[in-house]
Amino acid sequence: MIHRIVTALLIAVSSLSVQAQSLLDAFNQGAALGRSGNSAARSQINGDTLQSGVPGYTADPPQTSYFGSPGIAAPAAAAANACTGPGDSGDPTAQACNAVNFSQTNPTRRPMFSITRSDPLLLGAKTITADPQAIAGSIAGTYSGCTVQTTTTPDRFETALCHQYRTMETLSCDKVLIVTPMQTPGCSDGQFLTRVTADPCPSCVDYLAFDFSCGSDSYLMHAFTIAKSSGQVYMELGSQYVPGTLNTQIPKTPGPSQVDGYLCYQTHYSQSCSGANCSIGAWFSNPCQRTSYFGTSTFAMPTTVTFTDTWDNQCAALEARTQ
């Protein structure tokens, strides 16, 4: 039905174009004829007419499922596989397969063309676009929508100024004095170190005590006994500077001794240090009675503290900017 209407329109336009006095008259007559047939043609375009006139027409074709799908690669491959066999060219399904097969085989059959910039097609197109009126003629008599306008834009000049300057800033910085304490082993003259005690006679009224203190370059060893009842000095055995310094290993060294008709005793001491901890051992012997006793005591190594001063100049960067 649509084919018949189009054919009729073509015949009508052909006949009218012969009788038209101008291109504008022919256009107006053809437009009027086309509008007069719109109502009749529109009434024939509906579902019932298409179903009876178009082979294979359906209101719900399966291809509607392609809409919104992530891809059509799988349906396309299925359609190509379904059209591998030959069919009747008059059958609508076979015609669809002919189109599918053509799309698969045509890329390998199409001739390859090499079109350069000097090809007559491109040169002719440039000639047409450069001056359409020279090819198609003037349309001033048939269309009045185009007008010729000449616009002149004057030259524009602009003056731009650029200012470069440094702003005034108020900045502050600090110079920090860093005081670092350093501990070194050592003690001052007369500083008490430790006491070593021994009780060689549990039934006696006193027991032995040895006090060690720092000297200028040695130890002062003070030997005496302490009364068990009062804790006071019961008998002085003497004092003596003995060789020795902190943080050293000292073997058994003689201390205060007295062997005469009144007293009979001998003392010795030793020192052993491991890291910051030291231990002093003390011996008391009575050569007249051939008895000997030993005691030991551990003490933390005394230290002296010295300080080093370091300035952290946080203003160096700002001072460099002022140079």
Rank of each mutant, 00 (worst) to 15 (best):
P75I: 02
T105P: 00
Q104V: 12
G71N: 09
R110A: 15
Y143F: 12
T151V: 15
N98Y: 10
C162L: 11
E158Q: 13
V148G: 08
T170G: 00
A130T: 12
T159V: 13
Y143C: 10
L161M: 13
K175T: 15
Q63I: 15
S138L: 01
M112S: 10
M112Y: 01
Q191L: 06
L171E: 13
T105H: 06
T64R: 13
D119S: 14
T184K: 14
D119R: 04
Q133G: 00
S172T: 15
T129I: 13
A96S: 07
A136N: 09
T159R: 07
C83H: 10
I128L: 13
Q63R: 11
P111Q: 07
P75D: 08
A82K: 12
T108W: 00
A94F: 02
D91M: 05
D119W: 02
Q164Y: 06
A99P: 00
P75K: 08
S103P: 04
N81M: 06
A82C: 05
P185Y: 09
I135H: 10
A74D: 08
F192N: 08
T105V: 12
N98S: 12
T150D: 05
G71C: 06
G145D: 10
G137Y: 08
G141S: 14
P107M: 02
C173E: 06
N81F: 12
P181M: 08
A80Y: 05
M168Y: 01
I135N: 01
E158Y: 08
P132D: 10
D119M: 07
D131Q: 03
Q104E: 06
M182I: 09
I72V: 14
T93L: 14
C146H: 05
L121I: 08
T159K: 07
M112P: 00
L123A: 10
A136T: 14
I178K: 14
A136E: 06
P181C: 03
P86R: 07
T64D: 04
P75C: 07
G87T: 14
P92N: 05
T167Y: 04
Q149I: 04
T116W: 01
I72F: 08
S103D: 04
A73W: 01
S69H: 00
I135S: 03
A96C: 08
I115H: 03
P107A: 01
